[in-house]
Amino acid sequence: MQKLLVKTHEVWLVTLMASFMSNNAESKRVLNDFSDILFRNLTWIERDLIKRGEDYDYNRGNLPIKVDSLKVILSNISTRLTDMELMLSSVDNEELRIRLESDWDYMKFRVNILNDEKVTAFDMNRTYKNYNLSKEAVDAFTLFLFDESYKEYELIMIYNYLKAHFDDDFLNKIFQILVDESMFHLKSFGNMMAEMGILAVPRTLHKSLYQIEDVVQFLKDGIEEETAAKEMCRDLSAAVGRDTEELARFFDFINNQESYHIELMKEALAYYEKKELDG
């Protein structure tokens, strides 16, 4: 069961990366939708593990995704799903087993009939929509995408872990919004990385990041980090703003979204502290 969680985590990321690689609207949509379903599958398996009192973590293997043609990664996804189906016998919860089997069976069928296309997501062209960015702006943009795509993945897994372990509707509603927001950011940054030919899987997480002992401190640090991220967006907006209004406006938009995240985290912090105080 824990192995199935690891494998589902891995296939979610590979499918998400494949959606970034594709330039075909239909394939991109299908792979994006499937990655969302696979992430939900991960949360179902996780919930079942918690119910059964089994220990687990978000460790996973390295995921080689560098391909020249989409068919190669699609075939990899299909093989992974087949391997996972063979592990379903470890799932005692019959309802869950049937749901997972049905999802994966359809995904395999659908992925296998998607059209092939040339993949340019790893060619390191480092151009974005033919905008004429200065070397300084391209370097700053590149570093931002690497740093922030990892950060968003980290946040998704942290809030997901907290949500899985908190039996509190109010906090879980906030954590779910933060998961959704980070998912949107990760997808935005991933698509930009693919366009620039620098797509990469976010690195693995150390468990001390999500197995949080001090929630209050975590939220306080998180507010500080989001504030720092706002600064980065402001700097980047200024750096690329000279060359392209679209990118400058995108970073202003992300910057303003960080303000919303800060408010949500402050709300969670105030609620949690009050709850602790009330015993």
């Binding site: 390295n62 390191m124 391209v138 370097d139 590149t142 690497f146 620098i198 990469a200 690195r203 693995t204």
Partner: peptide, 19 residues
Amino acid sequence: MEMDKEIIQHMSNPNNYGR
């Protein structure tokens, strides 16, 4: 940090990352 292909390679696929 000034970027070149080698640095981007380290960022995309760092050597020895993991435990």
